[in-house]
Design a protein around this nucleic acid. Structure first.
Lengths: 142, 142
DNA sequence: TCTTCCTTGAAAGTTACTTTCAATATAGTT
DNA sequence: AACTATATTGAAAGTAACTTTCAAGGAAGA
């Protein structure tokens, strides 16, 4: 699995004319081993155990790169720092009450908060349903 | 309505031995007139139209005060700045798939993100439904 | 091997708060 | 109304967490 992720990253690098480097290899593989949110500093610490010369900025830029190619999501909780996590996938729905059109949406931040809420209630999530009802852009104007 | 909010604020001030000032009056009443999120700088601009001598810090501190007494909520979107909004009320549900127990929850941050998502799709929200299904703390252990 | 363009790490810069501090303004008391 | 203790204000300095700059070094195709 971590292999697939690394392959995806390498494909993206090649496609964009970017280069594979030892630093990116180390940072990405370390990140992929983490199965929950991780901050830049925290990831930097882990990475330094493998390659002490790697600096904050490179970790930072590599995470942006992973985000760019869809392998990571960036989260903002209220504590002032960004956390990154392995990308998953999910969809919820927005339904137009006039024309019935259904639009899929997904928002990782909502998913994360939902998990946080459930955790506060010691509730173990199996599934969820999140639907927004209203008027789509077209139906608002007629 | 804005009166009730002002009264609530004044009650809180008295209760805590804090003082009523012209600045707090202006900032709070301006804030209460806003029915959507507002940033510190944005509120500062409005407030300066009424009382030009009021500074950023006072707006900042007054918003923290409003947050403290439950009259405002602070939001953190990914764009690096905090937005504040008039406190409202809302509930969603968490449903246990084993015992059927229903727990109400509310999370302003989820509500705000939902609005943001809808806005991105030019969708006008009328209502929504957000349900989390899973195992409650009791049912997880048996 | 050559050459071009990408990367890196350190340092400087930015953004958006957050705290400090001396001057000023409340509000209870006289 | 005047007095006094304590809270509040605004400007400026301080922080935290990025974000950008820049010169040196490193990939990768020719």
């Amino acid at each position: 699995m971590a292999l697939n992720l690394m392959e995806t990253l390498k494909g993206y690098l090649k496609e964009k004319g970017l280069k594979q480097t030892r630093q990116r290899e180390v940072i990405a593989s370390t990140f992929f081993k983490t199965d929950k949110h991780i901050g830049i500093e925290e990831l930097l610490e882990k990475v330094k155990n493998i390659e002490p010369s790697i600096g904050y900025v490179t970790v930072y830029r590599t995470l942006l790169l992973l985000k760019e190619c869809g392998l990571a999501h960036q989260r903002n909780f209220g504590d002032g720092q960004s956390l990154f996590e392995n990308a998953g996938e999910h969809h919820d729905h927005m339904i137009c009450i006039k024309c019935g059109k259904i639009v899929e949406f997904e928002d990782d931040r909502i998913e994360a908060l939902q998990e946080e809420v459930a955790k506060n209630y010691h509730f173990k999530i199996v599934s969820h349903r999140h639907e927004i009802y209203g008027a789509c852009s077209f139906c608002q104007t007629e």
